[in-house]
């Protein structure tokens, strides 16, 4: 218990800020290439056990990050690191700023007038809050899956191909391959392979959500943001998505917001607890759920408030 007391602060302290070292940068550059078709056997996850103390590279680092909607401050001085190729769960009561934080990572808050931020948020060495940051490229590198499945009213094929075609031209065969690969990664290929030409709106909610995940994957992101991806789904579909997330972890860094404690415990490697716009505690999932450092965290995960 006492060892983990300082974890929330200590997470940042014992690791260099990625990007500040050229080495960290070059390693990350490798992952910029569109996702490899198969789970890479070479880049083996060094820690099948999340509790293991091996350090992970950090993909996203925030320092003193605050954000506002007009006069309302939604986030207060966040210091958080998100490790590479791990699942980070953001938990916290409603309105505590989880989605806000998530939307800053791919700058979706740009679409909200009056939203602005202060402080640092660094993705692979690049400050993504700056106005110089290429938002279009950032969003390509940081995919997002929304709470409600939102497929386009197009065919399943077109849905997947959409994102890829935004950024470059593809041959038909390449595109077909990409679509199949993405759908396979999202574990939905077998269900839809015979109806690629049909409208995506004809799929069930769970299938639609997996389609949205496949759609996000098809752009070749490094990071996948998921904002309560299972909240509109039945337990079976949720289980399918969870399984999927576990598989995706090998290739992608995943940040997931969830209100389901069991889910967070099941799928995430690290967990961050938000409360009223502040980061209360952040650490390895097992530690957070078994020996939380803060009483608020304990109360929240044991269901005493929130």
């Amino acid at each position: 218990m006492s060892t983990t007391k300082g974890t929330s602060a200590g997470v940042t302290s014992d690791r260099p800020v990625p990007g500040s070292t050229p080495a960290g940068r070059s390693v990350l550059k490798v992952t910029l290439d569109p996702g490899p078709a198969e789970p890479e056997p070479t880049v083996e996850d060094p820690s099948p056990d999340p509790m293991a103390d091996q350090p992970h590279e950090t993909v996203i680092t925030t320092k003193g990050f605050s954000s506002w909607y007009g006069k309302f401050q939604a986030l207060h001085e966040l210091d958080l690191e998100i490790p590479k190729k791990q699942v980070t769960a953001l938990i916290g009561p409603s309105g505590c700023g989880k989605s806000t934080f998530l939307r800053w990572i791919n700058r979706m808050n740009d679409t909200i007038s009056g939203a602005y931020s202060r402080g640092e948020m660094v993705l692979a060495g690049e400050d993504i809050t700056s106005s110089q940051c290429d938002v279009v490229d950032l969003r390509r590198r940081v995919g997002m899956v929304f709470q409600r499945p939102n497929p386009f009213p197009k065919s399943i094929f077109e849905n997947i191909a959409y994102g890829a075609r935004l950024h470059r031209r593809y041959d038909r065969s390449d595109l077909e391959e990409l679509v199949e690969h993405s759908l396979r990664q999202a574990a939905i290929w077998d269900e839809v392979k015979d109806r690629l030409k049909d409208s995506a709106l004809g799929l069930s909610g769970g299938q639609q959500q997996r389609l949205c995940i496949a759609r996000a994957i098809a752009v070749g992101p490094e990071v996948l943001l998921m904002d309560e991806p299972c909240s509109a789904l039945d337990p079976k579909s949720s289980a399918a998505i969870e399984e999927l997330i576990r598989g995706l972890k090998q290739n992608y860094t995943i940040v997931i917001v969830t209100h389901n404690m069991q889910q967070a415990a099941r799928i995430s490697d690290r967990t961050s607890f938000f409360y009223e716009g502040r980061l209360i505690e952040s650490g390895d999932t097992e530690q957070i759920f078994t020996t939380p450092a803060k009483k608020q965290t304990d109360d929240y995960i044991s269901g005493r408030f929130g």
Binding site: M108, T111, D137, R139, M144, P151, L166, A216, V219
Partner: peptide, 20 residues
Amino acid sequence: SLRQASLAMGATRWQTVQKV
């Protein structure tokens, strides 16, 4: 949500308008 989905994939506003 359709606009958001498109923008989140790195589409420009015009691409979103044109295609979605």
